[in-house]
């Protein structure tokens, strides 16, 4: 059975058809990358999956359950989790407190402390734990938010441009982090512009264009597809 299934999903903003009959199926355990030119509707698709927007028509199925009308927090309880495009950490609170807030509904007391320590170690943020999250570098904020997202032990992790603003080394480390999570059984859906990252992690790639699924396949198939190159180039020339 598929983990996530989008069926004929539609979303209009006024006259703009941002999501146009999207069908997408995610298999459990895969790393799936969503690419496409700016304005293709990638982030809107995430917001539909998360329940921040509601589709005009179509259905969203998660692990066989229809979650189309569920509230966002209830979808998180079902096993979804997200890292936003713009890092959404709690800026005024310490790094440690950020992780505590993410972990406290699953762990208590000594166990909570141990989990925070484990996560700080995993993210390489031990020496920053007392710092205010707003003072972290951009890359560290990204990692902190990824840390908060994975602390929920989600079945499906949504990553919206996880490597934006990162150096090539940081990007590669993020890729390894995602692969480690995937090896432990987490399914990942990532929006990403950085093709090095996509090449590193993606088992399957979906290209979104003008709110529609434009192409789908392995990274090699997508790179070889001249039509995909054309929409990217077309935009570059526009």
């Amino acid at each position: 059975m598929s983990l996530l299934e989008l069926r004929e999903l539609n979303k209009h903003f006024g006259g703009l058809h941002v999501t146009n009959g999207v069908n997408l199926t995610l298999n459990p355990g895969e790393i799936h990358c969503l690419i496409g030119p700016n304005g293709a509707g990638k982030s809107t698709l995430f917001r539909l999956i998360l329940g921040e927007h509601h589709p005009g028509s179509g259905d969203i199925l998660f692990a066989g359950e229809n979650i189309t009308t569920l509230k966002s927090f209830a979808r998180i309880h079902r096993g979804l989790s997200v890292k936003f495009q713009v890092p959404g950490v709690f800026k005024g609170l310490s790094v440690r407190q950020n992780l505590e807030i993410a972990l406290q509904s699953r762990h208590r007391g000594v166990e909570l402390e141990a989990e925070i320590g484990r996560l700080l170690d995993f993210l390489g943020l031990e020496s920053e734990q007392a710092q205010t999250a707003g003072n972290l570098s951009h890359g560290q904020k990204q990692w902190l938010e990824i840390g908060m997202a994975i602390s929920l032990k989600p079945r499906l992790l949504l990553l919206d441009e996880p490597t934006a603003g990162m150096s090539p080394e940081e990007t590669h480390m993020t890729g390894e982090m995602v692969q480690r999570l995937n090896a432990d059984g987490m399914t990942v859906l990532a929006i990403e512009h950085d093709m090095a990252f996509v090449r590193q992690v993606a088992q399957r790639v979906t290209v979104l264009h003008l709110g529609q699924v434009f192409a789908q396949g392995s990274i090699d198939e997508i790179v070889a597809d001249e039509r995909v190159a054309a929409i990217y180039l077309g935009q570059a020339h526009a």
Binding site: E52, S72, F73, I76, V89, M148
Partner: peptide, 9 residues
Amino acid sequence: NPERAEMLG
């Protein structure tokens, strides 16, 4: 950040 709080469940 209310959005982040909601997305932590």
